[in-house]
Amino acid sequence: MPVITLTIDDELVSARAGQSILEACREHGIKIPTLCNLDGLSARGGCRLCLVEVAGNPRLLPACTTEALENMVVTTHNEKIDRYRRMILELTFAERNHTCAVCVSNQHCELQTLAAELGMDHVRYDYLNPELGLDTSHARYGVDHNRCVLCLRCVRVCDEVEGAHTWDVKGRGIESRVITDLNRPWGDSESCTECGKCVEVCPTGALFDKGSAVAEMKKEASFLRRILDGREKNEWRR
């Protein structure tokens, strides 16, 4: 595969042609905050946390969906980008009811960690306090829409890896909600294979194992890379 060279944060780095800026950064240990992105799933560009500056482009571009190109000059951190990232986190926290203190994923939550890492220590916007439900109809898992950030990792892992496409999104804009099948209770879903991948990839406490109490829900998404490498690189022989 052809190799290209580009400049990221004043350093010359190499990348494989076709890689995204985010992938190139990760391989070189350059940290860019992400929320909707997950290694192994298609890139979406929705959470806007991985926005970077590319010289010559007047707009900030999502590192996850932008292809790294020869001679590109990328800035991943500066005062403006960092401020925007904090503001985007403020919006994310204001959108739903992320009451960390009483969340199953407290202390194991990607959103919570991002806020601490990026220094988002208070939200200036009105908390929207929407009325959202909890669906615990499934025998093993539950979904708490109060914690959902609409990263759609669940939708993507179910479609792209498990192949069931149980999850999708209903409505649009601020009314968007993740749904199973025809917006029926999860427990009634005919397509759900109960594989639990969606729960493991969920960055917050929105999807959880039933019976988890506050701060008990730990997730592990690294299985994804193993499965995919096994499949794609034919590492797993039949």
Binding site: H98, C100, A101, Q107, Q112, T113, A115, A116, A215
Partner: peptide, 8 residues
């Protein structure tokens, strides 16, 4: 430090 400023 970041770990000292988490919510929750």
């Amino acid at each position: 430090a970041p770990q000292m400023r988490t919510f929750g």
